[in-house]
Amino acid sequence: LATGPALADPHPDAELVINDEIELATRAPAPDHLKEVFDTVYSGWLFRTDETRALEMDDFDNPAMVFADMGVDLWNAADGSEGKSCASCHEGIESMKGVRASMPKINPAGNDIWSVENFVNTCRTDRMGAEAWKWNSPQMKQMTSAISLQSRGMPISVKIDGPAEPYWEQGKEIYYTRYGQLELACASCHEVNMGKMIRADHLSQGQINGFPTYRLADAGIVSIHQRFSGCIRDTRGEPFEAGSPEFRALELYVASRGMTLPVEGLAVRQ
C-alpha cells in the first residue's frame, strides 16, 4: 500500500524555488494565535507528490499562469457604460502588489468583511458601469489570479483585531463546527489529522496562501470559496454559498492561520 508513516508528514526538506530564483518559504513558525495547536505552519505544497510540486517550480510549467495572463488582458480591456478598464484608474497590474496578502479585509464603509472579489465587483458596478462577475466565473478567477501573482512572496498580513475581530471569531467558530452527515469540521481533517491519508488524499493544514490554485483534478483554477465548498460537500453537508458572509468570515480565519506563510501566487495542487 502506498500509505504509512513514510508518506504521512509534510515533506521534510523540499524547498520551493520558482524559476531557480524566487525562494518561497513553505514552513514557518505558527502565528501567535495558533501556537497552542501547531508550532509550525506548512504550505499545502509540502503534502503533494514530487510531480505536482515540480509543476509549481517553473512558471512555464505552471498551468495556472495562462489564467493569470488572461486576467491581465481583462485588466486592460474597457468594459461597461463608462468605457473604462481597471488600468484607467489603477494603471499597471503591479499596482495590486500587496492586495492578495491583505485579503479579506474590512470594506471602505467599515461594515462588512470583503474578499478581493467584492472589491473587484464594486469597481466594476460602481466605477465602470459594468456587470458584476459571478464569484466563480472564469473572468473573476482570471482576475483574482492576476491580482494574486502581484503579491507573490509577501507574507499573508490580514488584520484580525479591531473591526475585523467579530468576523474572525465567526470564522473560527465555523472552522470548528462539525458539518454534514459525516459530522466533520475543518479541524477534524486539517488540524487533528494533518499529515494522515484519507483514502488517496494526503491531508495538509488546509492553508489558503496558494490560492487561487490550479487543481489538476479540475483542470482549472479553483477559488478559495470553491475549495471550502468542496470540503463541506465531502462531509455530506450543504456548503454555504460562494461569497456568503459565512465563507468570507471563514476565509479571514483560515488566512490568519497562515499569516507567516508567503502568498504563493498561483499554486498547483492535485
Binding site: Y179, Q181, R236, P239
Partner: peptide, 21 residues
C-alpha cells in the same frame, strides 16, 4: 471523527449525499 453510520438527525447543515443540496 469516525462518522455515525446509523443515525439520521441532529446534524448541522446535512446534505443530500455528496450533491451539495
Amino acid at each position: 471523527v469516525m462518522p455515525a453510520f446509523y443515525k439520521n438527525s441532529g446534524y448541522i447543515r446535512p446534505g443530500d449525499g455528496f450533491t451539495t443540496n
